[in-house]
């Protein structure tokens, strides 16, 4: 398998000059590539290299980098090798190419990512609404959407009956008169 992995990496990096191969053990081959080349590399992997099964498409919000990361995971039934293709998309202007003509099920993945992260897929034909219903807020899987605040605002909490709950650290601190400086508080549990 190691040889076949080398061959795959060689072929891809020859064909796609911008593809960077990331080393991994086992049956994993991993590339990072600019987003413009995603359809091309996926087409190539499927048609020329035998990676005919699209196993997964995932999206990660790297809020601190102001980017979304898209991961395409393909599987070759003949080589028994997984290929990860990573790309980054600008978070302010999240636009991506649609690939549901390569694998039909990508349509569902893209629909969900569009709804949950707000990434537009150029040319995606699918109903706007997928999992959410009448959703007015920001795309909820984004890191800056605070689920807890939303839940507290939206759902009734049994405040009264549970109001005598105490924090263990705070209880002990009060008892001993320990003065905890503000900068240390972020390390309390």
């Amino acid at each position: 398998m190691e040889e076949r992995k080398k061959e795959i990496i060689q072929t891809i990096t020859d064909h796609f000059k911008d593809a960077v191969s990331n080393p991994y053990d086992g049956n994993r081959v991993d590339f990072t590539i600019p987003k413009q080349q995603i359809p091309a590399i996926l087409f190539y992997l499927k048609d020329e290299m035998g990676f005919n099964h699209l196993s997964h498409i995932s999206c990660i919000d790297w809020l601190e980098d102001k980017q979304f990361e898209l991961v395409y995971i393909l599987w070759s039934y003949t080589d028994r090798v997984k290929v990860f293709v990573h790309t980054r998309v600008d978070r302010e202007q999240p636009v991506m190419d649609n690939i549901d003509m390569i694998w039909r099920q990508a349509n569902t993945y893209e629909r969900e990512i569009r709804e949950m992260y707000g990434i537009r897929f150029a040319g995606l034909e699918a109903p706007e609404e997928f999992l959410l219903e009448d959703w007015q807020g920001p795309p909820p899987m984004r890191r800056d959407f605070d689920t807890y605040a939303y839940a507290m605002k939206t759902f009734w909490d049994r405040q009264e009956a549970r109001s005598n709950a105490q924090d263990v650290r705070e209880t002990i601190r009060r008892r001993t008169g320990e003065e905890l400086p503000d900068f240390a508080k972020k390390y309390s549990r």
């Binding site: 650290r169 002990i172 601190r173 008892r175 320990e178 508080k185 390390y187």
Partner: peptide, 22 residues
């Protein structure tokens, strides 16, 4: 586990869970 039971036993009540967590 950052419970802070130790701070009561410390005569000086040092901020033990916090610095350990740091």
């Amino acid at each position: 586990i950052s419970c802070g039971l130790c701070t009561e036993a410390c005569p000086d009540h040092m901020h033990i869970p916090e610095y350990i967590n740091a």
